[in-house]
C-alpha cells in the first residue's frame, strides 16, 4: 500500500518534471534526444514486463518494434491511410504475430527460449530487408507523414515531446497497476519457479502468452512513435543489435523495475550522444556493460543504488 502511494507521488513528480522540461527546453537537439529517450523507455518497459517480471528472455524484441514502425509506414505512406487508423492495425499486427509465435516459443525455457526468440527476430529482420517491393529493402523506407489531429499537427519537436512522454507516463501507470495485481504476482511467481506457480493454480502458459502479447503491443506502439518522428526507417534499426540494445537497457536499469526502464533507456540513449567518438566503441561498451552488470550487479543499477542507500541508512540508524 505504501509502495503504491510512493508510486503515485513519483508519477506526479515525473509528470511535472516532464511538463517543465517540455516547456522550458526549446532547443531542437535536446528535445529530439528526449523524444528518443521516451521511445526507448517505452521499449525497455515493454521488455521489462516480459523479462524482468515474468523472467522470459527475448533476444528478438526489436522485431515487434519494427512491425509497428513498418506497418504504420506502409499503410500511411503507400496506402495513404490516416496514421490514426494505421495505429490500431500496427498494434493488431504485432499482437497477432506475438500470439502465433508465442504459443510454441514460450513453451521453451532457458537457452532454448533465448535461441528461439533470437531466430524469430532474425527472420523478421530478414523480411524487412528482403521484401524489397513492400519495405524498401536495405536502403529503407522514406516519406512517412507526421501525425495530425484535424488541423493540429505534431510537427514540432515540442508537440511530439509531449505526445511521447504522455504515452510513457500512461504506460508507467498501467504497468505499475499490472505489477501490483494478481496478474503481476503470478508473473513474478513464474519467474521464481514455474513448477510451483503451476502447482498453486497459475495457468503459466496463458499467463506468459498474455504478457508476451502485451509486451509486443507496447513495442509496436514505440515503433509507431518512432516512425512518425524520424519519417525514415531502415532494417538496421530493428536488427539483432537493436534487440540487444533493449536487453541492455533493461539489464542496466534493473530487471523487474519500472523506473529502472527509464534509467536504462536514458543512459543508453545519452551515452552515444555524450561520447563523440562513441560509435566505434559502441558495441564494446554495450558488451562490457552487459557482462559487468550481470556479474557484479545482477539486480541492475537502480536496485544496486537502492540497496547501497538502504545499507547506509541502516548504518546511520545504528
Amino acid at each position: 500500500m505504501i509502495r503504491t502511494d510512493t508510486h503515485t507521488i513519483a508519477c506526479i513528480v515525473f509528470a511535472a518534471a516532464a511538463l517543465a522540461t517540455g516547456i522550458l527546453i526549446d532547443d531542437a537537439y535536446y528535445l529530439q534526444v528526449l523524444i528518443f529517450i521516451g521511445i526507448n523507455t517505452l521499449l525497455a518497459l515493454s521488455l521489462n514486463m516480459l523479462m524482468g517480471y515474468a523472467g522470459q528472455i527475448s533476444l528478438g524484441h526489436a522485431a515487434f518494434y519494427g512491425i509497428g514502425a513498418y506497418t504504420t509506414a506502409i499503410l500511411s505512406t503507400t496506402y495513404n491511410l490516416s496514421p490514426w487508423l494505421a495505429l490500431p492495425i500496427a498494434i493488431f499486427a504485432a499482437v497477432t504475430v506475438a500470439y502465433i509465435v508465442g504459443i510454441p516459443t514460450l513453451r521453451l525455457t532457458g537457452y532454448y527460449l533465448g535461441m528461439g526468440t533470437l531466430g524469430f527476430g532474425m527472420i523478421v529482420s530478414i523480411i524487412f530487408r528482403e521484401w524489397y517491393s513492400v519495405t524498401g529493402g536495405a536502403s529503407g523506407f522514406v516519406g512517412i507523414p507526421p501525425l495530425e489531429i484535424g488541423s493540429f499537427s505534431f510537427d514540432t519537436d515540442q508537440r511530439y515531446f509531449f505526445l511521447v512522454w504522455g504515452v510513457v507516463l500512461f504506460f508507467f501507470i498501467i504497468c505499475r497497476r499490472i505489477v501490483d495485481s494478481r496478474v503481476g504476482r503470478a508473473l513474478r511467481a513464474i519467474h521464481d519457479g514455474e513448477h510451483a506457480a503451476a502447482a498453486v493454480g497459475v495457468n503459466t502458459a496463458a499467463m506468459k502468452l498474455s504478457i508476451f502479447v502485451l509486451s509486443a503491443a507496447m513495442a509496436s506502439l514505440a515503433g509507431f512513435l518512432y516512425a512518425h518522428q524520424v519519417f525514415f526507417i531502415s532494417p538496421e534499426t530493428f536488427s539483432f543489435l537493436a534487440s540487444i540494445r533493449i536487453v541492455t537497457m533493461v539489464v542496466i536499469g534493473g530487471m523487474a523495475s519500472i523506473w529502472g526502464s527509464l534509467l536504462g533507456a536514458s543512459l543508453l540513449t545519452l551515452l552515444p550522444e555524450w561520447l563523440h567518438a562513441f560509435a566505434d566503441y559502441e558495441m564494446m561498451v554495450y558488451g562490457l556493460v552487459l557482462m559487468l552488470v550481470m556479474i557484479f550487479l545482477p539486480q541492475g543499477l537502480t536496485r544496486g543504488i537502492i540497496d547501497l542507500y538502504e545499507k547506509s541508512r541502516k548504518n546511520r540508524n545504528k
Binding site: 494478481r182 513474478r188 511467481a189 519457479g193
Partner: peptide
C-alpha cells in the same frame, strides 16, 4: 518451493490465484 523473491504475504496471495 516458495517464490523466494516475493514477500510472505505475496506468496499466499499467489496461492489464492
Amino acid at each position: 518451493e516458495l517464490f523466494s523473491s516475493m514477500s510472505v504475504l505475496e506468496n499466499i496471495l499467489v496461492g489464492l490465484h
